[in-house]
Design a protein around this nucleic acid. Structure first.
Length: 595
RNA sequence: GAGGGUGUAGCGAAGCUGGUUAUCGCGACGGCCUGUCACGCCGUAGAUCGCGGGUUCGAGUCCCGUCACUCUCGCCA
């Protein structure tokens, strides 16, 4: 098809272009037809320009303009005119000019659209995903996809400047389960054998260290066959990074410098030079989560001693059973009244994590306690109010249970309170490091210890003698990066010693014969002079999501899947031909029909 | 696997304790309109109220089941 190709984009014409003859290509964003005069907002990636078909327009142009509908793709040739002062649109970057059309061509037509292209679509997510190509035309999606591009570009620029190599690793690899479920790819050539899609390039990047590529990174797609969430998809993208001859602080420092550079360049946001560091235990104990949102305070406070002296039997029973009592101050609010109904909402949040209840009391005037469980704390008013740093109108909330349940439950209440009471600026970015993670946790279902992160993380030196005798207390050289309450990166210094690695495997119930089969290639590599090494893997989707002020990573992924692991646009996954199954030596066993 | 929420026209929503012809906005279609910029005005079409069953003289509304979407717990080394 012959058509006039653009000489300018829809976002760039200004007053100084007055009088120029230009060609624009783009989509009809809005078409205001006044009978004798058409105003067409023409849109492309770069912006929107008003083009006008007026009385002087050639008859053929007028006839074509009559046919235009929203989202038609068109080519326009015309003359740029500065608008008179009274007609300037200050809202638009190009609002000082308009283009008087001298030639108009429809490049393609558009069916009636299921939803209008706006800043943000108000259609339901399902509809947006089904028509993702239209949804992506919206300014909001265009901005977010651009932010993601800028973010990744800045990462590449920075790391390449620091001497890193970007190296690709395969996406068809050996299955090394443990942790998440693998996606499997059947081998046509070897009946019954499968490749796996990588959950992360973990082992491959460690082997690259053995190979001497001492500064490696990759923008890596990772796959985990688990249920999706707002901040989780079954495929996602990580900045995978590994370095040799580094210790923990080298990795942390590099990340602080990297994100300092990236945030300044992509968002014009200046981050602190260093991020707060919290031990895993302190994070859990003080904020009730291993990924605390430090845009606000509201620490959980230990009140074991006060509870013990109180007359509240429930608390005392929990303490005697070895549990703990923690309290949280809910600051008085102009917008949220602490009604019975609201307290029930808070209690429901606590119960999600297993708390049996949420005790409460209110702070009255002159250091008095009112309502709820206050009657059990007679004589302790002053001590409790001082401990909680509470003021009149505040509420104090208590959970009593085993330590972890107490922390998790009250931590959930803390998060809900902060959201409801708007205790933080959504434009803030609060990074923090969580360090000193336990290396193992006991899996009750399987009856053995498992790696809390993964099995390749280095135990801290002081625990090397007690790995087997007391796995539960071993801390690892592990670190998570947390941003605004989301885990955005996770890493560790790795084991590079065969014997130590085998000890870890054994503690995780993997005997030597089995680890040789499953991880033999790594162990073999470690026989050939492996360097000390460590790394980290920030999640690109989550970070961009937070930077874009969104709460779902679907908002920063061009073609995401829904919570049911389906892509509504192309309807993946789908059945395949019998021929394809035959070639792959697969027989499908249909699940039994329900009912 | 479990819990909460939602499902009404192409899209977004209203529809209170069951009661005539299911309402509104956007969009679509037709007409009018020379300065709009979410243009405006007049008119028209468009809905098996997610699906199946039940209660009832009568169900969008109540009950049971089921499906889809969504958030959360489990799960996510």
């Amino acid at each position: 098809m012959e058509y006039k190709q653009r000489t300018v984009t829809c976002g760039e014409l200004r007053k100084a272009d007055d009088g120029r003859l230009v060609v624009l290509n783009g989509w009809v964003h809005r078409d205001r037809n006044h009978g004798g005069i058409h105003f067409i907002n023409l849109r492309d990636r770069y912006g929107i320009t008003q083009v006008v078909v007026g009385e002087q327009a050639p008859e053929e142009v007028v006839r074509t303009a009559e046919k235009l509908r929203v989202e038609f793709c068109i080519a326009v040739e015309g003359i740029v005119h500065a608008r008179p002062a009274s007609m300037v649109n200050a809202e638009m970057a190009t609002g000082e000019i308009e283009v008087e059309v001298t030639s108009l061509q429809i490049l393609s037509t558009c069916d009636p659209v299921p939803f209008l292209i706006d800043e943000e679509s108000d259609a339901k997510e399902d509809t947006r995903l089904r028509y993702r190509y239209l949804d992506l035309r919206s300014n909001g999606m265009q901005k977010r996809i651009k932010l993601r591009h800028d973010f990744v570009k800045a990462i590449r620029d920075y790391l390449c400047g620091r001497g890193f190599y970007e190296i690709e690793t395969p996406t068809l690899i050996r299955s090394t389960p443990e942790g998440a479920r693998d996606f499997l790819v059947p081998s046509r050539i070897y009946p019954g054998k499968f490749y796996a899609l990588p959950q992360s390039p973990q082992l491959l990047k460690q082997i690259l260290m053995v190979s001497g590529f001492d500064k490696y990174f990759q923008i890596a797609r990772c796959y985990r066959d688990e249920d999706a969430r707002g901040d989780r998809q079954l495929e996602f993208t990580q900045l995978d990074l590994e370095m040799s001859f580094v210790k923990r602080d080298d990795v942390l420092l590099l990340m602080e410098q990297l994100f300092g550079y990236v945030f300044e360049r992509t968002m014009d946001v200046k981050l602190p030079e260093h991020f707060t560091r919290l031990s895993w235990h302190d994070a859990m104990n003080t904020y009730g989560v291993d990924k605390p949102d430090l845009r606000y305070g509201l620490p959980l406070t230990d009140v074991d001693d006060l509870a013990k002296e109180s007359t509240f039997g429930t608390f005392k029973a929990v303490l005697e059973a070895g549990g703990c009592v923690k309290a949280l101050r809910a600051p008085a609010s102009d917008t949220v009244a602490f009604t019975r109904k609201y307290i029930t909402e808070l209690e429901d949040a606590a119960k999600v994590y297993g708390a049996k209840g949420l005790a409460w009391m209110k702070i009255g005037s002159n250091h008095t306690l009112e309502g709820g469980v206050s009657k059990f704390f007679v004589g302790q008013e002053r001590a409790l109010i001082d401990r909680m740093e509470a003021n009149e109108g505040d509420m104090i909330l208590f959970v009593a249970d085993q330590w972890k349940k107490t922390c998790n439950s009250l931590g959930a209440v803390r998060i809900k309170l902060a959201r409801d009471l708007k205790l933080f600026d959504p434009k803030d970015f609060a990074f923090c490091w969580i360090i000193d993670f336990p290396l193992f946790e006991f899996n009750e279902d399987r009856g053995h210890w498992e790696a809390a992160h993964h099995m390749f993380s280095m135990p801290q030196a002081q625990y090397l003698d007690t790995l087997e005798s007391d796995p539960g207390s071993v801390k690892g050289d592990l670190y998570d990066l947390v941003l605004n309450g989301y885990e955005v990166a996770s890493g560790s210094i790795r084991i590079h010693d065969i014997e130590l690695q085998k000890r870890i495997f054994r503690i995780c119930n993997i005997p030597d014969e089995e680890s040789e089969v499953r991880f033999g290639f790594l162990l073999n590599a470690f026989r050939y002079g492996p360097p000390p090494h460590g790394g980290i893997a920030p999640g690109i989707d989550r970070m961009v999501m937070i930077m874009a002020g969104q709460s779902s990573i679907k908002e920063v992924i061009a073609f995401p899947k829904n919570t049911a692991a389906v892509s509504p646009m192309d309807d993946a996954p789908s059945y395949v031909d019998q021929n394809q199954l035959d070639e792959l030596h697969l027989i499908i066993k249909q699940p039994e029909q329900k009912g």
